[in-house]
Amino acid sequence: MLEVERLEVRYGAATALWDVSIRIAAGELVCVVGPNGAGKTTLIDAIAGLNRISAGRLAMDGRDLNHLPGHLFCDQGIAIVPEGRRLFVAMSVLENLELGSFRPAARVARQASLERVLEIFPALKTRLAAPAGTLSGGQQQMVAIARALMAKPRLLLLDEPSLGLAPSIVLEMFRVIREINESGVAVLLVEQNVAMALEIAGRAYVLEEGRIISEGSPADLMNQPHIRRAYLGESG
């Protein structure tokens, strides 16, 4: 479904991604792990149309996205849960969700989508009128995921959804991500919580210093000594 071929992204003179190729099939749950500053956010933002790419190719179902204006990426079925959530904090929770279904295709299904996300996150039911910025970190992350689901994506991009959350909420988030994936939505998950991410992923990539250094099933990756040392806390 999604094809990223030899992608290169630069910030001014600094190159953040070199020659990155990944692909995601419909319904897959793919994980990208890597240390801080590896370029994970850069990659996910590029796929969502937030960053311009300087070389390589992005395609969805064979359709080239390279020259598509940023605001039309969501019409291709791509929705993002950005790093740090980036809610519209002055707007109410409900308004954030409604904005998620801004495009006409999602707008017609708004009511049904709303019921569905409130089923997934019942805790939001009583907070719909509250300004999004007043919610707890965990609830804000729920709003960020719910907002993306309101767009009725076929590919959901999640950038470190567990960042800064209490362990019990992290577990809940991973459960929900798996559930969303099982309902047929392909997921690209970026995580520093490598052990948990590999547990739910069908396939994974390792990104270091802007390059994909490894790719495979979670079991394959977990057998590589480098991965065990660098990401799974195994000593020497």
Binding site: G49, R86, F88
Partner: peptide, 16 residues
């Protein structure tokens, strides 16, 4: 209002 708060993310949800 959304694009006044965070134009990039508003655009990601289809706001021109």
């Amino acid at each position: 209002r959304a694009s006044a708060e965070d134009g990039q993310i508003a655009a990601a949800f289809g706001v021109n």
